[in-house]
């Protein structure tokens, strides 16, 4: 069942491929610079709580976002800034959520990576790892009930999250129902400080696909082209009725678990290995080597991205913080059943 990168690619046509690659690179760059800005706002005390970066994981994430279409479901996780952007999340949704703006999708109620627009197919993760998989399964089930065809659901998680019961239950359920689910595991070799050797004992996480009876894909996620090809294939398989797809990508997170963490526990040999390559730099070198862009074009892209980011941040900084006195302290949709005034 294991499918590797040799599969014929829907991106075979050279100019289409070049366009896709270029678009992906732009999202990656935007995500990288946006996250750098978020990190600096955090260091400057403008963001309270945690900041979790996807540095080094942009190629994989963007490939997920780009393989999906409008109308699909995407449940990203903590390191999916690039995929979120490619799927259609605005910069403002990110900055507003991090800074707790009342105008953001989470209205200051939830923060940082815990954001989404479920009605637009972008689920808002809860922290509990694995929990989003069964939720996407249910959404796909609902679409089957409603007779909606041709859409898929994708969700991302880390190596560590594969140890949860929810991962097992969700993937198994999707397999039983043969749903168009794509589960993307970013195997960055660590879950916080815990190395894979303390997380699972199978040789390769993709081996789990066989156990669930789903198609497995394995890839090196430092290479953007590989990511685009494999994710396209996996999503196409799911869309064409091939059932759930488990994608396991090898890479390294080039940041701390969160910005509070110096990641000293990451093995230097891993950092120096292929996995330690920065996917953004690799993609950039490819652009230059193929002659798809020159230095000045890249520079232009960077300036453009930086300007968009600065604009989003400036807008957000001017926006009102949530005001507890006008906040609607009601957790229910059925308002008349709310009893909050009695209880507190």
């Amino acid at each position: 069942m294991l499918q590797t990168t040799e599969v014929p690619s829907p991106l075979a046509e050279p100019s289409a491929f070049r366009q896709t690659f270029f678009a992906a690179y732009r999202w990656m760059l935007l995500a990288r610079l946006l996250e750098e800005k978020i990190a600096s706002l955090y260091r400057g005390g403008k963001i309270i709580g945690g900041v979790f970066l996807g540095r080094g994981q942009e190629a994989l994430s963007v490939a997920v976002g780009m393989a999906l279409q409008k109308g699909d479901i995407f449940a990203p996780l903590i390191r999916d800034q690039a995929g979120r952007l490619a799927f259609g999340e605005s910069l403002l949704d990110c900055t507003r959520t991090y800074m707790g703006s009342r105008l953001g999708p989470m209205r200051g109620r939830d923060g940082n990576v815990h954001r989404g627009r479920p009605r637009e197919g972008m689920f808002a993760m809860i922290s509990h790892l694995g929990a989003m998989i069964p939720a996407v399964v249910g959404a796909l089930l609902a679409r089957r009930f409603r007779g909606v065809t041709g859409t898929v659901g994708a969700t991302c998680l880390g190596d560590g999250a594969t140890s949860t019961g929810a991962f097992h239950e969700g993937l198994n359920m999707a397999a039983v129902e043969k749903l168009p689910l794509i589960v993307v595991v970013a195997n960055n070799q660590y879950a916080y400080s815990t190395p894979n050797a303390r997380q699972f004992a199978c040789e390769d996480l993709v081996d789990k696909a066989v156990g669930y009876g789903v198609t497995g894909h394995r890839l090196d996620a430092t290479d953007l082209e590989t990511c685009l090809r494999v994710l396209n294939k996996a999503v196409a398989n799911a869309r064409d009725g091939g059932g759930p797809q488990l994608v396991v990508a090898s890479l390294l997170r080039l940041a701390g678990h969160g910005e509070h963490d110096d990641a000293h526990y990451i093995d230097d040999r891993l950092r120096e290995s292929r996995l330690g390559l920065d996917c953004l730099k690799v993609a950039e070198q490819r652009l230059l080597a193929e002659g798809w862009a020159d230095e000045s074009a890249l520079h232009g892209l960077e300036n453009n991205a930086q300007r968009q980011i600065d604009e989003a941040v400036a807008t957000t900084l001017r926006e009102p913080a949530p005001d507890p006195n006008v906040e609607d302290w009601c957790a229910l949709a059925t308002r008349h059943l709310s009893e909050s005034s009695h209880a507190e």
Binding site: I48, G49, M106, G108, R109, G111, H114, P322, E344
Partner: peptide, 11 residues
Amino acid sequence: KDTPVPYHPNL
């Protein structure tokens, strides 16, 4: 209060 714990320090 009878809502989930909010993120923003004000709330």
